[in-house]
Simulated scan of single mutants.
Amino acid sequence: MNILVTGGAGFIGSQIVDDLLQEGHDVHILDNLSTGHMAYVNPRAVFHHGDLLDSGLAEVFAAARPEVVIHHAAQIDIQTSLANPFLDAKINILGTIALLEQCREHGVRKLIYASSAAVYGTPQYLSVDEAHPVRPLSFYGISKHTPEHYIESFALLSGMDYTILRYANVYGVRQDPKGEGGVVAIFLDKLLEGKQPIIYGDGEQTRDFIYVQDIVRANRAALNKGSRGIYNISCNEQTSVNDLLKEMCSITGSSFNPSYEAARTGDIVHSRLDNRAALNALGWSPMFTLRDGLGATFAYYQTQYD
């Protein structure tokens, strides 16, 4: 089928593109390269350099004629959202509305939307399931949740199908430690350069880490499953930041010697997402353990520093 991937030159999107091409689909990519990289763009895909709010978005849809749109183009950094909420809302909310309008105009069958655990805010209970109250702490959480409502409304008006995937903390190959990278990429960058990793807070805060290839598999499953549903994509496991770094030190042969700094605004203390709904509706469950995922990530980054 014809598939358009927004953010298809980025960390997650580019690996979804690779997988879709491997499965025999025709893939178009829309990316403004603000955080994506041409080096990640599969040459078998058709690349469109542009922005969701560009006047040329309709031309991209006309060229791609997508049956399915997988939407990963976003502003993804919590601290950026707090410093510049207007930019955050412009990209994540208005950009998604512009995309939805084109989906409606061009008769797209289905939209798969990359949402975030940040929509839940401070958990009232663990594991957090999809029925948990939505009370985001950061502007980023708000700007990822708001499009969910627009997607639901557009679907009712146009008949378009959708699946919303709320990701836990994604890590893995191609994540950029120099930009808005997650903690795994940042820690690996420090360890490989022989520098001291920084932990914000006491390091006992926990996260649910999921390897990028499990995210790729969830998007593949959502092509034809999970109709009009919202699903957590996670490992349903808690790992403290201290334990994460200790595991990474073990894999890389480094000593555990972090620098501790004040906790950051907008960060929750504990997180673990219940993934049973995704298992039931998508037939999906994570395949990578944390150690396996970290090992694969380390092997990739090691080649970048050789």
Rank of each mutant, 00 (worst) to 15 (best):
A118S: 15
A155M: 08
R65V: 03
L100A: 00
R264G: 04
E193A: 12
A83H: 11
Q238Y: 05
N32D: 12
S81C: 14
F209D: 12
S250F: 05
R276G: 13
A185H: 03
L282P: 06
I164W: 03
A98M: 00
F288V: 04
Q205N: 15
V170Q: 09
S240Q: 10
S138E: 05
S250C: 00
R65K: 09
A45D: 00
S240R: 10
E237M: 10
A222K: 08
I93V: 13
V5I: 08
L137A: 07
S255V: 03
I199T: 14
Y40L: 13
H25V: 01
A277H: 12
S255G: 01
Q196F: 06
E152A: 15
V269G: 10
V212R: 08
Q175M: 12
I76F: 02
G181D: 02
H270V: 10
R174C: 09
K178A: 15
N219D: 14
Y171T: 07
Y211R: 08
A277R: 15
M287R: 15
K195D: 10
P286R: 11
C103N: 01
S116T: 15
A62G: 07
Q196A: 10
F288H: 12
M248W: 01
N242W: 08
R228A: 10
M287H: 13
H106S: 02
H25F: 02
Q102C: 07
E247S: 03
Q205S: 15
P258F: 01
F86P: 01
V128W: 15
I78Q: 07
A89C: 07
N232L: 10
L244C: 09
G24F: 00
L192T: 01
D88F: 05
D51R: 05
H48S: 00
S143W: 02
T206F: 13
G293D: 06
A281L: 13
P66Q: 02
L21M: 01
A83N: 13
T163S: 05
D77R: 10
D189P: 03
I91Y: 03
N84A: 13
K178H: 12
G253V: 00
H270K: 14
H132S: 15
Y300E: 03
S255Q: 03
S234C: 07
A281S: 14
R264N: 07
P197S: 10
G24C: 01
N236I: 04
T163V: 05
P133E: 09
A58E: 13
P123I: 12
P66S: 04
G295V: 03
Q302H: 02
D19V: 04
L245Q: 09
A45N: 00
P147A: 13
G24S: 01
K178V: 11
G8A: 11
S254I: 00
L192I: 01
A9C: 11
A89G: 04
T146Q: 13
D306I: 05
E180Q: 06
G172K: 08
A222M: 12
Y40K: 11
Y171M: 08
K190N: 05
S227M: 10
I78C: 08
